[in-house]
Write a protein that binds this DNA or RNA. Structure first.
Lengths: 198, 198
DNA sequence: CTTGATATTGATCGCTGATCAATTTATTTA
DNA sequence: TAAATAAATTGATCAGCGATCAATATCAAG
C-alpha cells in the first residue's frame, strides 16, 4: 500500500543508499540486489525503481556518497603551505579512509557503466573537487609553472596513490608494507623531484 | 549431438577463451554471457560448463591468458644493462600493451571473485612473475642504496604505473592525457627526486 | 467531498547462470 | 567383430535476476 507520509523522497533516498552501503561493506558490489535492498528498507522493488533509474544509477549515487565522505574527511586537514607536510597529511587522510572502507572504496573502481553511458557530470565534479585539494597543496612549489602542469602533477600523484590503494585492497602488498609508508616515500621523492627539477 | 572428435579438449578451451576475449574486447566484462560464448564456439551451454566450473572460472582463465600475453611482450624487451634505457623500454612495452588492450586489461581489475573464494595459485603466480620482471628492471636505476630501499622504490613506481593503466583502462583519463605521457613525467620527476635527495 | 497528482504495489516479462538425466560417440575389452 | 565401458554433448529445467507498468492507494488542493 502507498505510504507517502512514512518517508519523504529524500529520506527514502538515504534509506536506500545506506542499505546499499551496508550490503557492499559486507559482501562487496556483487551482493547488490534490487529486491534485497527494497526489502531492507521496507518497500518493494517498484519504489526502488521510482527512486533510481536502475542499479547502475543506484551504484553511482552510492559511490558518489563515498566520494563525498572522503572529501569531508580530507577537508578537515589543516594546510600549512608546506607542500611536503600538507601532502603527507592529505595522503594520510585519504589512505586512512580507504583502509577503513575497503569494500566501499573498491566499489568505486570495480563498477563500470555500460559503454554507451557517459559518467554523469555531478560524479566527475566530485572527483575533480578531490583533485583540487591535491593541486592546492602542491601549488606553492609549482608557483612558476602553468596551471596545466600543476594539474598534471596533481593527477599523477592521485593516480599513483590510487594504484597503491587498489593493490592494497586486493592483498598484493608485501609483508610489512603499508600503503601509508609507500605513499610517504612517493610524496617525499616526487616533491624533491619537483623542487630540484632542471 | 556429441561430436567428441571435432575438437580436443584443449582446442575447445582455446575456442572458448578466444571467444570470451573477443566479447570483452568489444563490450567489456559486462558482455560475457555463457549462452553467447557457447553459441560463438558452436557448442551448447552444457559443454561450456564441462570446460569451466562457472563464469568466474572462465573469466579467471581468460585474465590469466591476458597476463601471459603481457608477460610474453615484456619478455621480448632487450635489456642493455643501461638502467635508464631498460626501464624506459620496459615501461613502454607495458604501457603499450595496456593501451592496446584496455578492455582486456581492465577486466583483470574489474573482476572480483566472491569473498569466500581464494585466488587460484596458478593465477597469483602469473601476477608474481610479471611483478618480478618489472621490479627487476626498475631496480638497477637505484643502485647505491640498500636492497630494501631499492626494492621499495621499484615497487612504488610499479604501483604508480599500475594506477595509471587501471584508470586509463576504465576510461578515466582526461582528453589528450595518455598513460605514457603521465608515466614519463612520473618517472622523470621521481628519478630527479632520487638523484637530488638530501 | 471531489479531483488530480503522486507514491506504491506486485504480477509479469525476458533474461541469466547453473544443473543434470538422457543421449550419442569413442575407446577398450572380450 | 561385438559388447561393455568411459566420456562428451545436449537441452529441458530451475531459481533467481533487473526492469516494466497497469492498477491501486494515498495525499494535497480546490
Amino acid at each position: 500500500m502507498a505510504r507517502r507520509s512514512d518517508h519523504t523522497r529524500e529520506e527514502l533516498w538515504w534509506l536506500a543508499i545506506n542499505a546499499s552501503r551496508k550490503v557492499v561493506e559486507k559482501e562487496g558490489l556483487r551482493g547488490i540486489r534490487a529486491r534485497q535492498i527494497a526489502r531492507d528498507i521496507g518497500y518493494t522493488i517498484g519504489t526502488l525503481y521510482n527512486l533510481f533509474d536502475d542499479l547502475d544509477d543506484l551504484i553511482m549515487q552510492m559511490n558518489g556518497e563515498t566520494l563525498d565522505q572522503l572529501m569531508q574527511e580530507c577537508s578537515k586537514v589543516e594546510l600549512t603551505q608546506n607542500p611536503n607536510m600538507d601532502l603527507e597529511r592529505l595522503v594520510h587522510c585519504y589512505l586512512s579512509f580507504t583502509h577503513e572502507n575497503p569494500k566501499l572504496w573498491n566499489a568505486i573502481f570495480e563498477h563500470k557503466l555500460p559503454e554507451d553511458r557517459p559518467v554523469p557530470e555531478w560524479y566527475s565534479e566530485k572527483v575533480s573537487r578531490l583533485l583540487a585539494l591535491i593541486e592546492h597543496a602542491l601549488a606553492p612549489i609549482l608557483s612558476g609553472r602553468s596551471d596545466a602542469e600543476i594539474h598534471q602533477h596533481a593527477r599523477i600523484l592521485w593516480m599513483s596513490l590510487f594504484g597503491m590503494t587498489v593493490l592494497e585492497g586486493s592483498g598484493r602488498l608485501q609483508e610489512g608494507e603499508t600503503s601509508l609508508m609507500l605513499a610517504k616515500t612517493l610524496i617525499k621523492t616526487y616533491v624533491d623531484g619537483l623542487k630540484n627539477a632542471p
